Amino acid sequence: MLSWLSRALYGYGDDGRWHVNDAVDEAGWDVEPGDEIEPVVQAVGRLLRVCREAAGLRPGELAEVLGYGEDLIRKIERGQRIPRPEFLDKADHVLHANGHLRAFMEDMRRARYPKKVRRLKELEDRAVEMLLYSNHNIHGLLQTAEYMTALYEVRQPPLARDVIEREVAGRTGRQSVFGREPVPSLSFIQEQVTLERPIGGKMVLRHQLEHLLEISQLRNVSIQVMPTEREDHAGMHGPLEVLKFADGTAIGRSDGAFNGRPVESPRDLRILELRYGMIRTQALPPRESRAFIEHALGRL
């Protein structure tokens, strides 16, 4: 369990800045090797083939009707490509599948996200409280799509466009946590430098700071800034996160604690919560933090 949680919790890590290849965007993504969603994708592919053959269409003919390439149809039928929900909706209508293809739309919507993102989202969707400290970038749940894109574009070695698009889609999908009912309690602490580093350029940063101000107005969200000038700082171990669940359990992680692995024992979690509490005390209060962000925005 901890092995996949470690991968999921490590490194959280329109805008018109770039455009993904239409074929990748419309058709979906290849299945990751060993992904547990693979059997479902294969089942969808077999069902698509059955429906196509029942309609008396060849792969190329279906591709022409749907507006996709024949190779993509074949990949989906072989279970190698994850179809977008929109593809299934259109195919269901064209093939008169009576909702059988549409029934998999939600599964394919989740499957579109990278495996580590799906698992992280499951945890975030269960959490009733989150304690989140970031010292290098704006936290993923707070990022705009253009800021996310800029972060992935500076990765080295460079990431392929379809990889960037999929990662951005996955991270954006996690932000549904803000619309959940009942709403979770979200506490974010951001280092000052994350509000000043112009990842993607000044306009990207401007939009990002404006977004932070909007999110900070939500009643269940607290955003605090840790000023660089602070002499006492309990967050020198790096990013720290604690997710608490309704059944009283929790999971947490910090780069500089417990070898960077996720922990679930009450004793270990208490250490992380104590450290987070100290960071929160040392950071600017929410009202002052909002004023700090407004001031930073005014300088751009």
Rank of each mutant, 00 (worst) to 15 (best):
L151Q: 01
G67M: 11
P285I: 00
E70W: 04
K202A: 12
E214Q: 11
V128W: 05
M236I: 13
A145F: 00
A55H: 10
E191L: 05
G179C: 10
A27F: 06
G56W: 12
G260E: 12
G60R: 08
R84A: 04
R253W: 04
D162V: 02
L212T: 01
G34I: 00
P85E: 11
A246C: 03
G11L: 14
S254E: 11
R174L: 09
A291Q: 12
G67E: 05
V40Y: 07
S254W: 05
G140Q: 00
L212S: 04
E129S: 11
N21K: 07
R171Y: 06
L66V: 11
D30C: 03
K121T: 15
H207G: 08
D255L: 14
R102V: 08
V163A: 14
E64I: 02
D92Q: 11
G173D: 05
V163W: 01
Y113T: 00
S222K: 03
V177C: 00
P262K: 00
P157Y: 06
P59M: 09
L274M: 06
E181D: 14
E61L: 08
F258G: 10
G256W: 11
F104Y: 13
R118N: 03
R81I: 01
H93D: 13
D125Q: 05
S289W: 13
K115Q: 09
L123N: 01
K244S: 11
Q217C: 04
R267I: 14
M130W: 00
R197F: 10
V31W: 13
E124D: 03
A160F: 01
L300D: 08
V24K: 12
L57V: 02
L57R: 11
L88N: 08
Q224V: 04
F258N: 10
K116P: 00
K202N: 14
P114G: 13
N137H: 07
A257K: 10
Q192D: 11
R119W: 13
E32N: 07
P33D: 07
A150N: 09
E214G: 01
V193G: 01
R267K: 15
N259R: 06
V128D: 08
R119C: 05
I76H: 11
V94S: 05
V65K: 15
A43F: 12
V65D: 08
D255Q: 08
K121I: 12
R78V: 05
A111N: 05
G34E: 06
E165R: 04
G28V: 02
Q80F: 10
H100K: 12
R253I: 13
R155Y: 05
L218W: 02
R46Y: 02
H233P: 03
I189K: 03
I293G: 05
G256V: 14
E273R: 04
S289C: 13
S216R: 04
R275D: 02
G60L: 09
D35M: 01
P33F: 08
A43I: 14
G252T: 12
K202V: 06
P85I: 15
D71P: 00
I215N: 06
N98F: 05
E36G: 01
P227Y: 06
A283Q: 04
R161H: 05
S134E: 06
G248K: 04
A43L: 15
D25Q: 14
A27D: 09
V65G: 06
L272I: 07
L132A: 09
R280V: 02
P39N: 05
E64G: 15
L151Y: 00
